[in-house]
Design a protein around this nucleic acid. Structure first.
Length: 187
DNA sequence: GGTAGGATGGGCT
DNA sequence: GCCCATCCTACCC
């Protein structure tokens, strides 16, 4: 089942935790979400939306369930999913996936990787593995070629909380969530 | 097993 | 002009 809009129309932290275990599907490739980070609309200087609405951050303030894709360090695209009701900022960075289908296509897009564990265990790696680019900026994830669905076996995973990775502002907030013991978590 | 350094371009002041 | 929500390679245990 594709996650409905109402799933995303909630507090960003709740959406982030509940995204763990869900599947991101693009074409024939799919991955299970094992690691995410919450970026809040209020009181979070690390969030891109902290500087207000700009051409780049516009979608973060829009309706939930859409994709916010940005270019990181001039080279890598990163995928976020917009949360909170329309008009309020908040999004969830997808940091790592456990590949579940279409692995051959992922290997082709990723190039030289030593093992399947390295296919999508990082925010820039997973977009490359799934073929997600800035062309998906603003895409509606409740319909179309890129969607998020519930897993076939719906058991809720055990969740670890820790500090977000690679940021300098608000670096101590425990807004990174991952599935306990999962080997596809980035670190 | 570990880490240091460089690539590379858009967004905003 | 400065700042990055990163990744890969080389090199060293």
């Amino acid at each position: 089942m594709i996650l409905p809009r109402s799933f995303y129309t909630r507090a960003t932290v709740d959406v982030a935790r509940d995204l763990l275990g869900k599947w991101i599907v693009h074409g024939k490739s799919a991955g299970r979400i094992v690691e995410v980070e919450a970026y809040l609309g209020e009181g979070d200087p690390a969030a891109h939306s902290a500087a207000g609405m700009t051409p780049r951050t516009r979608v973060i303030f829009g309706p939930p369930g859409h994709a916010y894709v940005y270019l990181s360090y001039g080279m890598h695209e990163c995928l976020n999913i917009v949360a909170e009701p329309e008009g309020k900022a908040g999004c969830v960075l997808i940091r790592a996936l456990e590949p579940v289908s279409g692995l051959a296509a992922m290997r082709e897009r990723r190039g030289a990787v030593r093992s399947d564990r390295e296919l999508a265990n990082g925010p820039g790696k997973l977009t490359q593995a799934l073929g997600i680019t800035r062309a998906h900026y603003g895409a509606d994830l409740t319909r179309g070629d890129l969607v998020v669905r519930s897993a076939p076996d719906g058991a809720a995973p055990e969740v670890d909380a820790s500090a977000r990775i690679g940021i300098t502002k608000a670096a101590d907030l425990p807004l990174r969530f991952s599935i306990r013991g999962n080997p596809f978590v980035s670190r």
